[in-house]
Design a protein around this nucleic acid. Structure first.
Lengths: 204, 204
DNA sequence: CCGCAACTGCACCACAGGTACAGTACCTGT
DNA sequence: ACAGGTACTGTACCTGTGGTGCAGTTGCGG
């Protein structure tokens, strides 16, 4: 802990993430990463046993960062309202704003990228990926449960599906934004999800 | 036209699509494709100038097949109801059923795959990809416009965003299904989009 | 001055993508 | 019957680079 956490490893991961999200995992060469970071090939293999190990680290780091954003946004929203519905609606608005403020739009979701490379990785990486999506479901399901305790839904909906819808809209919105080249599309989709939640639960 | 359309080319594309969707484009080798189809390397290069050319063909073929499904489903729905809202709701239900009936779930969306490989391809491929998403927007926007002519929306929504939401839910739902390994998630998400449309426009 | 973390340098191989061509089997129009 | 196109096969060859192993080095904390 006396060490400031080896930053070379972090630099490699940062470079790898950007490359993987724009060209795919296999097309991301180790040579290119070490050139960008300024280390030797052996230096790379000191930090990562092999390329698959890099993939796992990349995925775990992405999920961790993602969770931190969610934690922060939900905490902030909870401070602004005690009501579970209003807090959730505030959180979604804050989240939309976070994505809107990213200067070049959302760079891409590693979970989605891994999904479209699944046969390249071992069972463990795929299982980490699945666990991440299920943890998002659990997080949103928890919020929605508390909303449903207080507000009668206007239509009958499965609450797991409603929770999953966030992940779907998120990953789908990222793809939309990237493909069309319009970074406003992701936040707009999140706000549409917010409208749906409001229509389902808000009696007003 | 007397020829039954070279089926070897189609076999290559079929094998390539399955491989690309599960391992990514770069990890899909020409050697592996020709082994599966049972042709020689020269045979491959007779059909495709290079690998990029294969990618373009793959994308164009996917978009074409996708459009055909949409055409069929919307035509079927139009026969069942003259009302634009009801026809749209029927179409979404039919579409959910189409995906539910796929024995192994949706194999993946080439548009999304290309999106996560963009730097690998030239401007033309990326432009084809963007055009596909915009054509989905136009298709759904057309339907939604007709609904909005007859039904006053319960909340104020941007109709382009509402149209885009289908693409987002579709691509996001595919990822969800693939990652969690539950093929029911995609159709469930489509039905949730249907619920949203109903809540927005249906006065009942 | 020991020992560990964090590297560098070098050698190596398999294999993928791609090129170049010559040859062949079959079908079609004239 | 034969000219010519389509749809290939076979062979040879070249380049780049991904992935790996391992021996050696540097610098810093204790």
């Amino acid at each position: 802990m006396t060490k400031p956490t080896p930053q070379t490893r972090e630099q490699i991961l940062e470079a790898a993430q950007a490359a993987v999200l724009t060209k795919g995992f296999s097309a991301t060469s180790i040579d290119e990463l070490i050139a960008e970071v300024g280390i030797s090939k052996s230096g790379f293999f000191y930090h990562f046993r092999d390329k698959t190990n890099l993939a796992r680290a990349l995925l775990e780091r992405y999920i961790e960062q993602d969770d931190m954003v969610f934690d922060r946004v939900f905490a902030e929203a909870d401070e602004l309202s005690e009501d579970p519905l209003h807090s959730f609606l505030i959180a979604l608005k804050l989240l939309a704003k976070v994505f809107e403020d990213l200067p070049n739009g959302h760079p891409g979701c590693i979970v989605a990228s891994v999904c479209y490379h699944e046969q390249l990785f071992d069972q463990e990486v795929r299982s980490i990926n699945a666990k991440a999506v299920l943890s998002w479901r659990a997080r949103f399901r928890g919020r929605i449960d508390k909303i449903a305790e207080r507000y009668e839904p206007r239509i009958s909906v499965d609450l797991d599906d409603l929770a999953d819808m966030f992940s779907a809209i998120g990953d789908g919105g990222i793809i939309l934004s990237k493909v069309v080249g319009d970074r406003s599309l992701l936040p707009k989709q999140l706000l549409l999800y917010r409208d749906f939640i409001r229509l389902v639960f808000d009696p007003a």
